[in-house]
Amino acid sequence: MFVKNAIDLFSELGVRLRGFGDDSATRGVVNAACRANGWFTPAEVRRAVGAIARDMLSREKLEAWLANYPAVPVATPRRVLVVMAGNIPLVGFFDLLCTVVSGHWCLIKPSTKDTVLMEYIVGLLRDIDDSAPVEFYDGASSVDAVIATGSDNANRYFRARYAGIPSLLRGSRQSAAVLSGNETPEQLTGLADDIWAYSGLGCRSVSLLFLPEGYEPMLQMPAVNGKYKNNYRQERAVLAMQGHPFLDLGAAVAVEQRNFPTALSRISYTHYKTLDEVAGWLAMHDEELQCVVTECLPHSRRASFGGAQSPALTDYPDDRDVIAWLAGLH
C-alpha cells in the first residue's frame, strides 16, 4: 500500500470516528468495551477514540508526519505481529497505524481486555478498503517481525519467544512531573488529569511529583473509577497499619518518596533544592520514564500540563522511533 493510499485510509477512519458514542450503534460499542474491561468507563472510551481521531488521523497531521520518512513505504512488505496491551482504550492503535503506513502487513494480537474496540476499528478499516493490510493473528502463522507491549514479566517472555526475529519490545514505564511552584490553577487542573485520567493505568500517567522545597500544590481529584477507589481504600488501610505517613487526597494517597510507587492509588512526591538535582535523577532513571510533565526543565519527552494523556504522532513510546524501526526491516 502506497503512503498516499494509507493516508486516505486513515484520514477517512478519522472522519468516521468523529462523534463516536453519540449514536446508539457506537454507544453499544462503548458499553460492550466497558463490560469487557471493568477499568474502562464510557467517558474515557469516548475520550480515547476522540483523541486518536483528533491528534493522529487528520490528513494534515498524517502528511506532515510521514513527510519525514522518505524510506516509507518499504519496498518489501513484511508480516509484522503487533501484540497489544489493554490497560487503556485502544492503547495499541498507534502501532497498528505505524505498521500499515510503513507499507507492512499488520497482524494484530489484541489484549483480551481491549478486543471490542480493536475489532470495531479493524471493521471500519475493512469497510473503507477491503484490501487494507490488517488482520487478527491466528496464533500459528509465521511472522517476520514483532512489536510487543506489556508488563516487565511479559517483556521477558517476549524476548524469549521472539528471539529469532526483529523485535521492538516494551515493558513497564511511568511518568513524572516537575513543578516550579508557580503553576496556575489551570495547570494544576491539567496535572490532575495527567495523574488520574484512565485511572492512572497508562505509562504516560504521572505518578511521581518533584516539588520545590516548601511547596505543597493543591490538587483537586477528578471522579475516579470505583475499582480505583477500592484500591485506594486498601492502600490507605495498609499504610495506616504500618504507621507509614501519607496524605489522604480523597481517593488516592500521596507518600513522600523519590521513586515511582508500586501501588496504583499511591502518588509519590519529593522536594528538591535545585533543578539540576532533578535533571540528574531523571537522567539516571531514564529507562523507567515515559514522559515528563513540566515547563521548568528541558526533556526529550516533555509534555505540557494536561497534555500527558494526548500524545502526538511524534511522541513515540519509550522514545523509540517506530516508523524508522519499521523502515529498517529487511
Score class of each variant (00 low, 15 high):
residue 50 G to T: 15
residue 50 G to N: 15
residue 51 A to G: 09
residue 52 I to R: 13
residue 53 A to W: 08
residue 53 A to V: 09
residue 57 L to Y: 02
residue 57 L to V: 08
residue 58 S to W: 00
residue 59 R to K: 12
residue 59 R to G: 00
residue 59 R to A: 07
residue 59 R to N: 01
residue 60 E to W: 00
residue 61 K to T: 12
residue 61 K to F: 00
residue 61 K to L: 08
residue 61 K to N: 13
residue 62 L to E: 08
residue 63 E to Y: 09
residue 63 E to V: 15
residue 64 A to K: 14
residue 65 W to H: 13
residue 66 L to S: 08
residue 66 L to T: 14
residue 66 L to M: 14
residue 66 L to K: 05
residue 67 A to T: 08
residue 67 A to G: 13
residue 67 A to V: 05
residue 67 A to K: 11
residue 69 Y to H: 10
residue 69 Y to W: 10
residue 69 Y to V: 07
residue 69 Y to C: 06
residue 70 P to E: 04
residue 71 A to N: 07
residue 71 A to G: 04
residue 72 V to T: 09
residue 73 P to T: 04
residue 73 P to A: 00
residue 73 P to V: 02
residue 73 P to H: 01
residue 74 V to T: 13
residue 74 V to C: 10
residue 74 V to Q: 05
residue 76 T to M: 04
residue 76 T to H: 11
residue 77 P to A: 06
residue 78 R to D: 01
residue 78 R to W: 05
residue 79 R to N: 14
residue 80 V to D: 07
residue 82 V to S: 13
residue 83 V to M: 10
residue 83 V to I: 15
residue 84 M to H: 07
residue 84 M to K: 02
residue 84 M to N: 02
residue 85 A to G: 10
residue 86 G to R: 02
residue 86 G to V: 06
residue 87 N to V: 05
residue 87 N to E: 07
residue 88 I to R: 05
residue 88 I to K: 06
residue 89 P to H: 04
residue 90 L to K: 04
residue 90 L to T: 08
residue 90 L to S: 01
residue 91 V to L: 13
residue 91 V to M: 11
residue 91 V to N: 10
residue 93 F to A: 01
residue 93 F to C: 04
residue 93 F to I: 10
